[in-house]
């Protein structure tokens, strides 16, 4: 029971990071592809306005995930971090570059400076979800054995499943960002940006859906066990739900109903994460390390869960307040207060 609860807690953190952190990385993707300095300025300004107050809080989900893993599943954590050292370290460097460039570009004085920092921000925003996705793909494909760097340091995360999950992470983040930014643009009463993000949301949503379908084909040959899990039982339910949420999202985007689309787009991602967990149940590191084998003693799990329960009571109201302030436009980076 306690190990399953600890897995659930880890999945909450992972989902928080994939949806909220992922959307921030996706915003970087739209920054990267916004076009020249003048043409891309409105999109970039909206990205900055939406991200500035929340990206640090959104990033903490990742720290939270790491902490849960090393406390509740220390041996799996050690195995993952040693075998997958390359993609995870590259993602870490990307996080430094992304966060550093984003925080510092606000003070850029010349166009050249803003461009260099902006490009660093945008490019690393694409690399981080790719490498994290590749690492997740490696675990799901059963390439991370128990042990100190006992898996192959390169081929473990360069297989078809890894590349695919990496690309899917980038696409899903970009899609979430387009939806969130579309909703923000509507609230800011910027119809031209609403239209711009509608096109982006539809395009990235279609791309993410296509990647997911291709993914099933890739997984069926590269990771048959995972494929079986995704096409039977609870795994299948999640996959279908995710597909349904995706289709509904596209329909909502078509009608520019971004407020609702935020929820359905997030649901599509949540369902995929849940489907992955269901597909490889009871394993934490397939094909051999189960959740119960990997779990810390009950006393540690109980302490972590109690501490997290109490922590959530403080965290959730604070987080809700932050998002409400941010969404209502009461946290903005401009110096002059709005009328």
């Amino acid at each position: 029971m306690l190990p399953e609860l600890a897995v659930a807690l880890a999945l909450v953190a992972l989902t928080g990071y994939v949806v909220l952190g992922g959307a921030d990385f996706g915003a970087g993707f739209w920054d990267l592809t916004a076009g020249g300095a003048e043409r891309g300025a409105p999109v970039r300004a909206m990205v900055k306005r939406s991200m500035s107050p929340v990206w640090e809080a959104n990033h903490v989900w990742l720290i939270f995930l790491l902490v849960i893993l090393w406390t509740a599943f220390p041996e799996a954590f050690g195995s993952i971090m040693s075998t997958l050292a390359v993609p995870i370290f590259l993602a870490g460097l990307g996080i430094v570059l992304r966060g550093g460039a984003f925080a510092l570009k606000g003070e850029a004085a010349t166009i050249a400076e803003a461009r260099a920092l902006g490009a660093t921000f945008a490019l690393s925003s694409v690399l981080v979800p790719f490498f994290f996705g590749a690492a997740v793909g490696a675990i799901a494909a059963g390439n991370v054995p128990l042990g100190n760097a006992t898996g192959d340091e390169l081929t473990s995360w360069t297989g078809p499943t890894s590349i695919l999950v990496g690309l899917l992470s980038v696409a899903a983040g970009a899609h979430l960002a387009a939806v969130f930014l579309g909703a923000d643009s509507r609230r800011a009463e910027r119809p031209e940006l609403v239209r711009a993000f509608r096109v982006r949301a539809l395009g990235s949503g279609a791309a993410a859906g296509a990647l997911a379908l291709v993914g099933l084909v890739v997984v069926s040959s590269d990771a048959p066990d995972l494929f079986d899990g995704l096409t039977s039982g609870l795994g299948l339910v999640c996959v279908l739900l995710s597909g349904l949420a995706g289709v509904v999202t596209l329909a909502l985007e078509w009608r520019e109903r971004f407020e609702l689309a935020r929820l359905t787009a997030s649901a599509a991602v949540v369902a995929i994460v849940a489907g992955w967990a269901a597909a490889q149940e009871p394993y934490l590191l397939p094909p051999s390390l189960t959740v119960s084998e990997a779990a810390a003693p009950d006393v540690t799990l109980a302490a972590l869960l109690i501490a997290s329960g109490v922590g959530m009571l403080l965290l959730i109201p604070a987080l809700v307040w932050l998002f409400r302030l941010a969404v209502s436009g009461r946290l903005a980076y401009e110096d002059k207060p709005r009328p």
Binding site: V67, W70, T71, P74, F77, G78, S79, T300, L314, L315
Partner: peptide, 20 residues
Amino acid sequence: PEFMATFGDVFGLAFGLEGF
């Protein structure tokens, strides 16, 4: 990784609280 794998369940709680 060996340090974390061996003792993460002993000292990890503090980092959990730090996370919050």
